[in-house]
Design a protein around this nucleic acid. Structure first.
Lengths: 128, 128
DNA sequence: TATAATAGGACAAAAGAGGTCATGTTAGTC
DNA sequence: GACTAACATGACCTCTTTTGTCCTATTATA
């Protein structure tokens, strides 16, 4: 049930990899894919989601690549996962769509909230 | 990513339904399926997992059915989900299988732990 | 013995995840 | 300006997992 998707995993590893490079260094997807032993084309997809969501910045054209769009201490694990997976919306996880007095949903929501708090608290700078 | 499976949802709703009945009352799967508007045969499957894992007790034969195998205040949401989904093992969710000094895994583990604490804390008696 | 319930395996259908590819766009370099 | 090497994106394929159905066996009651 609570499994991290490949996309999420690759995104985290990719961002950590970029963060481990010097400040404004531009990194190619191929380089990352090779170093992390991850399928290149798939990683491209994942990175474009990170780009669209403002986590990383892409430079197109020859000599292009990616760099972080803000310092690692300002990017949380949560930011990356939501960028890749869409909002970790616990309203989707409704238990009793039928009854609005369902008491299970608050439990589920609370558990999600606790989890996300942890993911928000930890920044990429902490895990490089 | 963090979506409750149908199996998990049905299990929770089924157990809550049984708990809402009088003490030792025996309930038929068909009855539950109808009242919860859930596919009967699938619910059968889910319930057999709950039975195997000691959450509910099955009575076979004519006039058979299910009842809780312990009082609702001793059954947590966590118990039910793990019975249905298998252990919510966060070791499966390894991020960097490669490097054992990966700093992402502790973050993931911590977030899982927080979430599961909530699911363990809340008992069926609280949500009936 | 008939009946009505659970047990569980086999299997089909549907959904989702993971991965690949082809084509387009962009910008640096010669 | 042409060439080249990078990202952007949509289409598509494959594989796995989840969800759902059905059939047969087993069990217990009346």
């Amino acid at each position: 049930m609570f499994k991290l998707s490949r996309a999420g995993e690759y995104a985290l590893r990719g961002v950590v990899y970029i963060a481990s490079k010097k400040g404004g260094d531009i990194v190619h997807v191929r380089k990352i894919a090779e170093s992390q032993n991850v399928p290149e084309y798939f990683l491209t997809k994942v990175f474009s989601r990170l780009t669209r969501n403002g986590i990383i910045h892409s430079i197109r054209g020859n000599k292009g690549g990616f760099r972080l769009s803000r310092p690692p201490k300002k990017i949380s694990v949560y930011d990356i996962l939501t960028a890749v997976e869409g909002p970790l919306n616990f309203n989707d996880c409704f238990i009793c769509k039928n009854s609005r007095k369902c008491k299970l949903k608050p439990v589920w929501d609370e558990s999600m909230k606790k989890m996300l708090e942890v993911l928000k608290k930890h920044k990429i700078a902490d895990v490089v």
